[in-house]
Design a protein around this nucleic acid. Structure first.
Lengths: 148, 148
DNA sequence: GTCTATAGTGGGATAGAC
DNA sequence: GTCTATCCCACTATAGAC
């Protein structure tokens, strides 16, 4: 909260005239992130269907790109417990919809594909792969597995 | 450190007569975890090769089971930066070896399969799947994708 | 190898003046 | 809507007596 206030050019206690708690602030940031990510994710699905490379590949590229462009926000959105009671109803499901569509409506396959993408992403952000690992290759291997 | 000392029936500062820092203690716990997990993971590979259900399925079952049985240790081992310089050389690679073997020596496929397993596991531990999600089904879908 | 006492840091949050 | 002053908490770690 102090770092945020510094960035805004005010003192930390002043933040509490605008938001009720750190948790509420985080929920607002998460909702914004779902809206922004959901939009690019839906756009990627539309693009992927038009090209010959497939929807899964387009979604994976967009997922990874968004996460690497907003690493702290990605961790905030995907790490730890999600305060769903503070989010607009249906927002999370809407943001996730493209992967369900790409999985042909199979929720099990969609969840497996999401787990793969999240695993790749968080392991990359945490620097858990060896320095010589070919991450593009690993992404391609996983995409191929879920396209089949 | 205080909780640990409580459990041991001593005061927190006394811990520092045995270990140099929290980071060293964590590295010792992580090394132990790699040894224990690596053993059951290698055993699972051997079992999986003898049965008709395939090595990937046996490894996935063991991976998930170990993580759910030791959730805090799993988070310690897989979350955040790994202090590799404090670990015995080769230990991490030895623990991971079964998945590389099951992937036919293809490191890209092995990393993709690990990312899937880690993603499923950490999302389950964090309660990120909907309450009505069929996690066994999602695991099966992912295993099928990586067996193919 | 244990203890008490304490240093030092950093975090979220409130009270009350302006 | 901002400020200063402050509270309270949790945490890692050290100093020094026994």
């Amino acid at each position: 909260m102090r770092h945020l206030a510094d960035r805004m050019g005010i003192r930390a206690p002043s933040l509490y005239k605008h938001i009720e708690s750190k948790e509420e602030l985080e929920a607002l940031l998460i909702a914004d992130a779902f809206r922004e990510f959901g939009q690019v994710f839906h756009d990627a699905l539309a693009d992927g269907r038009r090209s010959r490379r497939g929807a899964m590949r387009a979604l994976a590229r967009t997922y990874r790109g968004w996460a690497l462009a907003h690493p702290h926000l990605y961790r905030l959105v995907t790490g730890g417990r999600l305060a769903r009671e503070r989010l607009p109803e249906g927002l999370e499901a809407w943001a996730a919809e493209p992967i369900v569509i790409a999985a042909g409506g199979d929720h099990d396959r969609a969840r497996a594909a999401w787990a793969f993408a999240h695993g790749m992403t968080i392991l990359e952000l945490d620097g858990r792969f060896p320095p010589d690992a070919n991450l593009d290759g690993a992404w391609s291997a996983g995409i191929a597995a879920f396209e089949g």
